[in-house]
């Protein structure tokens, strides 16, 4: 009987899915979660195919974890929700829009993927 070399599958580096501090929202839930939501709410308009959104993602998760006690951060995928992107005149991704009581109080387009930048972006509109 011939010896057969068994093909051993090479190990694939497995990545743990991080805790999702940034919740996804759609046009169905946007009004309830964002416009009627209480307190400061930041919304990231993004797309999964956008390389800069990918750079921002882990940093935004960190920031969302830091501010979770007094601020919520949501994500809108503009590839799925083009009408929301149209309504808020999104010129590119990622764009962060800060809402308070349903009104836009600030926005940052294409922020640098640094904790300090994003923290400033999501906090300062509510500090005045």
């Amino acid at each position: 009987m011939k010896n057969k070399t068994l093909a051993v599958p090479r190990p694939v580096p497995r990545r743990r899915v991080p805790s999702d501090w940034v919740q996804s929202t759609t046009s169905d839930t946007f009004a309830k979660l964002v416009l009627e939501g209480e307190g400061p709410i930041a919304v990231e308009f993004m797309s999964y195919g956008c390389a800069h959104c990918q750079l921002i993602e882990p940093v935004l998760q960190q920031v969302a974890a830091m501010v979770k006690s007094n601020e919520k951060i949501f994500r809108v995928n503009i590839a799925v929700e083009p009408e929301l992107a149209e309504r808020y005149e999104i010129q590119g991704t990622p764009t962060l829009i800060m809402f308070l009581d349903g009104s836009e109080v600030g926005r940052v387009e294409g922020p640098s993927p640094a904790v300090s930048t994003l923290l400033t972006a999501v906090r300062q509109p509510y500090e005045s």
Partner: peptide
Amino acid sequence: TPYFTVLSATKRRL
């Protein structure tokens, strides 16, 4: 809908 990049990330509207 263009994607922003680190190099082009300068626009802000408030």
